[in-house]
Amino acid sequence: MIRQNYLADLEMSTYLAQNPITDADVQADYNREITSLSPQGILSEYKVSDIAVASEVDAQAALARIKKGEPCDKVAKSVFLAPNKVQGGAVGWI
């Protein structure tokens, strides 16, 4: 298995040395992917947040606060159990 992995790494290194990837190649591939994701030019992105609590009762209470209009990040900062509590439960962009 070690020999096979070594040979695969060697082959990949040799190929990349003979066929370097340029910034233009990366940009072209990126543009192709964006085009394939959204033929009409509309691409949706979402900033995702979550709230992790200890029990269903805590989850229902947090949901009730949000439904009353309290900002999700404020609720997350007060009840969230995960490390991203400080960021209001922010997960990132998807």
Rank of each mutant, 00 (worst) to 15 (best):
M1N: 05
M1W: 05
M1R: 08
M1I: 06
R3K: 11
R3C: 05
R3P: 03
R3L: 10
Q4M: 09
Q4Y: 11
N5A: 07
N5Y: 05
N5L: 11
Y6W: 14
L7W: 10
A8D: 10
A8T: 08
A8H: 06
D9G: 13
L10F: 15
E11M: 12
E11Q: 15
E11T: 14
E11P: 04
E11C: 10
M12P: 02
S13W: 09
S13E: 14
T14H: 11
Y15Q: 12
L16G: 03
Q18H: 10
N19G: 04
P20F: 11
I21R: 11
I21Q: 10
T22L: 15
D23R: 11
A24Y: 03
A24L: 12
D25G: 06
D25R: 03
V26M: 09
V26Q: 07
Q27A: 08
Q27W: 00
Q27E: 07
A28L: 09
D29F: 12
D29A: 15
Y30H: 07
Y30P: 01
Y30D: 04
N31Y: 06
N31V: 05
R32P: 02
R32W: 05
I34N: 00
I34W: 02
S36E: 12
S36P: 00
L37H: 03
L37T: 00
S38Y: 00
P39F: 00
G41Q: 02
I42C: 03
I42W: 08
L43A: 04
L43N: 09
S44M: 04
S44C: 02
E45V: 08
E45P: 00
E45Y: 07
K47C: 13
D50V: 01
D50K: 14
D50C: 09
A52R: 10
A52E: 12
V53Y: 01
A54L: 08
S55G: 07
E56T: 13
V57W: 08
A59N: 05
A61E: 09
A61T: 07
R65L: 15
I66W: 12
K68W: 00
G69A: 11
E70F: 12
C72W: 10
D73H: 14
V75Q: 04
A76I: 01
A76C: 02
K77E: 05
V79P: 03
V79W: 03
V79T: 10
F80V: 00
L81C: 06
A82E: 09
A82S: 06
A82D: 04
P83K: 10
P83V: 11
P83L: 05
N84S: 07
K85Q: 13
Q87F: 10
G88H: 02
G89M: 02
V91P: 01
V91Y: 02
V91Q: 10
G92V: 02
I94H: 00
I94F: 00
I94P: 01
